[in-house]
């Protein structure tokens, strides 16, 4: 079978609108980060606050070192791939621009997407362990797909470095300190293949980043994103239900409280 919705995937370039009323990073901290902090646990909020508003705290709140537990499960959140708070914060902000918080619900950061990506980059996704990675490597036609010798985690690492470089050269600031529209300008440059990357095209990095953001927003929460199943709640997706045989013939839309596949196995 085929996924019809793929056709609808809009390839149109995200237009930079100066008057775009996307909220800025500062707004995020005011409106969502702290308010939903209980869901997020130690790493990112500490890191963000440290970086942005309270520099003295920065060293004591580095992600992965706080050992703070989240919720009732006693799970500890930390970083398994990214090595610096700066990298993690930059990618966090980029995902939030792709999937921002709004009146429908949390954005990428509130959903734990950055942690999801961190975890994936450390594992088989990041290491390309199921991909054919034998040489020789050549630049191919777009119809031939992935031809980089780089693994996904190497592409992310380089991409983040270049996001920082662009922030410096365009705005003389760190990526995380940019206004939302400035971040969008840089992300759009990646998307339009205007940034020179080594061993891979910047549009490919952008596509990976966009896709990973959606994956983190909507994958089962067992992977660390989609916190509180809020991604599913926004979308009206009930997650893992055993069966719909009782409702399948319903004429009306059926609202169902979502369940995670992990809930089976407590």
């Amino acid at each position: 079978m085929y996924i019809q919705n793929n056709q609808l995937f809009n390839r149109e370039v995200h237009k930079m609108a100066g008057k775009d009323k996307n909220f800025s990073r500062r707004d995020f901290l005011k409106t969502s980060g702290i308010a939903t902090g209980a869901l997020i646990g130690g790493g990112i909020i500490g890191g963000l606050i440290g970086a942005n508003t309270n520099k003295q705290d920065a060293t004591t709140t580095a992600p992965g070192t706080s050992g703070e537990t989240s919720g009732s499960t006693g799970a500890v959140r930390g970083l398994t791939f990214f090595k610096t708070t700066a990298e993690f914060e930059a990618i966090s902000q980029a995902t939030e621009r792709i999937f921002p918080e709004d009146d429908l619900g949390p954005g990428a950061i509130g959903l734990g997407v950055p942690y999801f990506i961190d975890g994936q980059l450390a594992g088989s996704y990041g290491e390309n362990s199921k991909e054919y990675m034998q040489g020789p490597f050549f630049v191919g036609e777009p119809t031939q797909g992935y031809q980089s010798r780089l693994k996904r985690n190497e592409i992310f690492r380089q991409g983040i470095q270049l996001m920082e470089q662009e922030a410096q050269s365009r705005f003389e600031a760190k990526f995380v300190d940019l206004e939302g529209e400035q971040m969008d300008e840089i992300l759009t440059a990646f998307q339009e293949n205007e940034i020179k990357m080594r061993g891979v095209e910047s549009q490919f990095f952008f596509r990976l980043l966009r896709q990973a953001t959606l994956e983190g927003a909507y994958a089962d929460p067992i992977y660390g994103g989609n916190v509180n199943m809020d991604g599913w709640r926004m979308k009206g997706f009930p997650g893992h239900q055993l069966a719909y045989i009782k409702d399948i013939e319903s004429e009306d839309f059926v609202e169902i409280d979502p369940k995670s596949v992990g809930m089976n196995h407590k």
Partner: peptide
């Protein structure tokens, strides 16, 4: 399913606020 189904009407950007709203709205309306 929500990762692979993000339907948006023609003219919608592929990321950002408008994308989020349209893809959420249309997940159950397409």
């Amino acid at each position: 399913r929500p990762i692979l189904s993000n339907p948006t009407p023609p003219g919608t950007p592929s990321w950002g606020a408008d994308f989020k709203r349209a893809s959420i709205e249309n997940f159950t309306r397409i």
